[in-house]
């Protein structure tokens, strides 16, 4: 009976998959004729979504970060919490997958940090999970494509086209064929002149959600935390003596030429610590931003088939970047808990 049911379910699923493939092919060939693919505007700063809390405006990358937070907390509360409340020892289902991921992270941290592992673990693990979820959720269709339509401030825009109307909400797209130059109007910067009735002439789309890592604030914040926590754990483990790594005064006093060289090396290490923030941040940002750019440009050139391969590529890169960020943070933090002198001793 159950076998028959699964068979039936399988058949049903198979037909859904066939339908999806057919619909995909249909829209892939007919879609570009209706909706012209648009090469995107390259913007570095996150765009405001129009929402604000107490005068603090919320950007679209913030919204995406909050969405990633929400997903992680949902997993933590509803999946992990439910399993923990069940009191079972045998994991199953989605919890098992999540636990396998956490176990993998835990094993790496434990291998690198030893007895400090449990104290260190929350920082790199949260870094990994947040980047992981943010990078993957960024690839969901609708991200970076659905947003408000507005007048460009400078450069070129496109003419708006009415797509469909749901209630009193009009849904527009922009027509690539009708390229329009921005005309500086009088009173553009004025208040209350924002035309509600009359639509923009040269338009661009400001997405509601944009990949967190495509905003420099997100990777730099994580990099800053990673480097800051390296110092915090270093001081926690070694006391104030940790800072001798950067300013080796004792060595300068003790040994002549070698001491001086070590002093300079220590200063270099201090500089390197700030360089770490830069390299951490730009690595993640560069990879993800380049990926987004690549996807949208290739999508604008050929809407069929090629973006699929690039999507796989992007999924892979999203995971790899999360892993690299996590691994480097783990290595730096666990390295800080080990005494510099102890290494020299043997």
């Amino acid at each position: 009976m159950s076998e028959e049911q699964t068979k039936k379910g399988f058949n049903w699923r198979k037909w859904v998959i066939y339908f999806c493939i057919l619909a995909g092919i249909y829209s892939a060939f007919l879609g570009p004729s209706i909706l012209k693919p648009i090469s995107p505007v390259v913007v570095l700063p996150a765009e405001p979504t129009g929402l604000s809390i107490g005068g603090f405006e919320i950007t679209n990358t913030m919204l995406a970060t909050l969405l990633a937070d929400l997903i992680l907390l949902t997993i933590a509360v509803f999946v992990v919490g439910k399993f923990m409340r069940s009191g079972s020892l045998v994991p199953g289902g989605f919890y098992n997958a999540f636990e396998a991921l956490v176990e993998f992270l835990w094993n790496t941290v434990e291998g690198a940090a030893g007895k400090w592992a449990f104290r260190i673990f929350p920082v790199p693990a949260t870094i990994f999970l947040l980047i992981f979820v943010a990078n993957l959720v960024k690839l969901v269709p609708g991200f970076e494509s659905i947003g408000r339509i507005k007048e460009v401030h400078h450069g070129y825009g496109y003419a708006p086209v009415l797509l469909t109307k749901v209630g009193n909400l009009s849904i527009y797209t922009i027509d690539k064929a009708q390229k329009r130059e921005h005309v500086a109007k009088e009173g553009e910067h004025g208040e209350g002149h924002v035309d509600q009735e009359k639509l923009c002439e040269a338009c661009e789309i400001v997405p509601f959600l944009r990949g967190s890592a495509t905003d420099l604030n997100f990777p730099f914040a994580l990099a800053f935390i990673a480097v800051l926590m390296t110092q915090v754990y270093g001081v926690w483990a070694l006391g104030i003596g940790y800072f001798e790594k950067f300013i080796p005064i004792r060595q300068l006093i003790k040994g002549g030429a070698m001491g001086a060289i070590n002093f300079i090396v220590g200063i270099l290490e201090l500089i390197l610590e700030f360089a770490k923030i830069l390299s951490f941040g730009f690595r993640l940002f560069g990879n993800i931003f380049a990926g987004t750019l690549l996807l949208s440009i290739v999508g604008a050139l050929t809407a069929v088939l090629v973006p699929v391969g690039l999507y796989f590529f992007e999924v892979f890169f999203g995971i790899i970047q999360a892993y690299v960020f996590y691994l480097l943070a783990t290595i730096f933090i666990s390295g800080a808990t080990v005494s510099h002198h102890a290494e020299e001793a043997h």
Partner: peptide, 16 residues
């Protein structure tokens, strides 16, 4: 924005 991200991460790390 930067401080928002730092704050967000801290809260998330503690909760997680």
């Amino acid at each position: 924005f930067f401080l928002f991200q730092v704050f967000n991460f801290t809260i998330l790390a503690l909760l997680m």
